[in-house]
Amino acid sequence: LDITFHVDGKNIHVHGASEEVVRIIEELIKNNARAEEIKETLERLLR
């Protein structure tokens, strides 16, 4: 699975993920999660 995301100002662009995963990533970023935390969360979800 190949998910890429980047933050452009306040806009979060996520590619290669389901809508549910996109929402989770957006929440994590809004809550100022570190990249490592986001990665760990995604790995748990995608197991």
Rank of each mutant, 00 (worst) to 15 (best):
I38W: 04
H15A: 06
A17K: 01
L28M: 14
L46D: 06
F5G: 06
E26C: 07
N11R: 08
I12C: 07
S18N: 07
N32M: 11
A33M: 09
I29L: 11
R34T: 13
E19P: 13
K39Y: 15
V14P: 00
L46S: 08
F5Y: 03
A17S: 03
T4K: 06
L28I: 05
E43D: 13
E40R: 12
G9D: 07
E36P: 09
H13S: 06
R34A: 13
A17G: 03
V22L: 07
A17D: 01
H15R: 09
R44I: 10
L28T: 01
N31D: 09
A35H: 13
H15C: 06
V7W: 03
I29S: 02
F5R: 05
L28Y: 04
L1E: 09
A35L: 15
N31H: 11
I3M: 10
E37I: 14
R23C: 02
E20G: 09
V21K: 01
L45F: 06
H13D: 04
E27S: 11
K30H: 11
K10D: 14
R23I: 09
E19V: 13
A35Q: 07
E40M: 11
G9F: 01
E27G: 10
R23H: 10
V7D: 08
K30N: 09
G16F: 05
E27K: 09
G9E: 04
D8A: 04
L45C: 04
H15D: 03
I12V: 08
G9W: 01
G16A: 07
A35M: 15
L46G: 07
I38S: 01
V7F: 05
F5A: 09
D8I: 01
T4W: 13
V22W: 03
D2F: 03
I3D: 04
N11F: 14
K30T: 09
R44A: 13
D2N: 07
G9L: 02
N11W: 14
V14D: 00
E26A: 08
K10W: 14
G9Y: 00
G9T: 01
E19F: 10
A35R: 03
E27Y: 07
S18I: 04
L28N: 01
E26D: 11
K30W: 07
R23A: 12
V21P: 00
A35K: 04
I3P: 14
I3W: 15
R34G: 13
H15M: 08
E43N: 14
D2G: 03
E19G: 09
A35T: 06
E26P: 00
L46F: 07
R44W: 05
F5I: 15
D2R: 02
E27V: 08
E36V: 09
A17I: 13
N31A: 13
E19W: 10
A35C: 08
E43S: 11
H13R: 06
N11I: 14
I38L: 08
A17L: 08
V21M: 12
I12E: 01
R47V: 15
E19T: 13
E20L: 08
V7I: 11
E27M: 11
K10A: 14
E20A: 09
K10V: 15
T41K: 11
N11K: 13
F5D: 06
L42T: 02
A33H: 11
L42S: 01
I29Q: 03
I38K: 01
E20M: 10
S18A: 06
H15V: 09
E26R: 11
T41V: 14
L1Y: 14
V21I: 14
G9N: 03
E37Q: 13
K30I: 09
E20D: 11
D8T: 01
E19I: 13
L42E: 00
I38N: 01
R34H: 13
L45G: 02
V21N: 03
S18K: 06
I12N: 00
I12P: 00
I38V: 14
N11G: 05
R47M: 13
I29F: 04
E20P: 06
H13P: 03
N31G: 11
L42C: 03
R44S: 12
V7M: 03
A35S: 12
I24N: 05
I29R: 01
A33T: 10
H13A: 05
R34Y: 07
K10M: 15
N31L: 10
L45E: 07
I38E: 01
G16S: 08
T41D: 04
I25P: 00
E37P: 02
E19S: 10
H6Y: 12
V22H: 04
K39F: 15
I3Y: 15
V14Y: 05
L1H: 10
V21T: 12
D8M: 02
V22Q: 04
E19M: 14
A33Q: 07
E20K: 09
I38R: 01
V14N: 00
I29G: 01
L42I: 12
V21D: 06
H15E: 05
L42M: 07
I3N: 02
I12W: 07
H15F: 09
E20W: 06
A33S: 11
E20V: 09
K10F: 14
I12G: 00
E40S: 13
R44P: 04
K39C: 06
R23M: 12
L46C: 05
T41W: 12
T4H: 15
G16H: 07
K10C: 07
L28S: 03
V22K: 06
K39V: 15
T4E: 15
N11E: 15
I38M: 04
E27Q: 12
E19K: 12
E27T: 10
A33K: 10
V21E: 03
K39Q: 13
I24M: 11
V7H: 05
I29D: 00
T4M: 10
R34V: 08
L1N: 09
R34E: 09
I12M: 06
N32A: 09
R23W: 08
E40F: 04
S18T: 14
H15W: 07
K30V: 10
E26S: 14
E27A: 13
R44G: 10
N32G: 14
A35W: 15
I24L: 11
L42P: 00
D8K: 01
I25F: 04
V21W: 09
K10E: 15
G9I: 01
N11C: 11
K30A: 12
G9P: 00
A35N: 07
L42N: 00
L28W: 03
L45D: 02
V22N: 02
R44L: 11
N31S: 13
E37D: 13
H6N: 14
A35F: 15
N32V: 05
H6I: 15
T4A: 08
V21F: 07
V22F: 05
N31C: 07
V14K: 00
L28G: 01
R23Y: 08
L45A: 06
E36T: 10
E26Y: 09
K30S: 10
K30M: 12
I25W: 02
K10I: 15
H13Q: 07
K39A: 10
V14L: 05
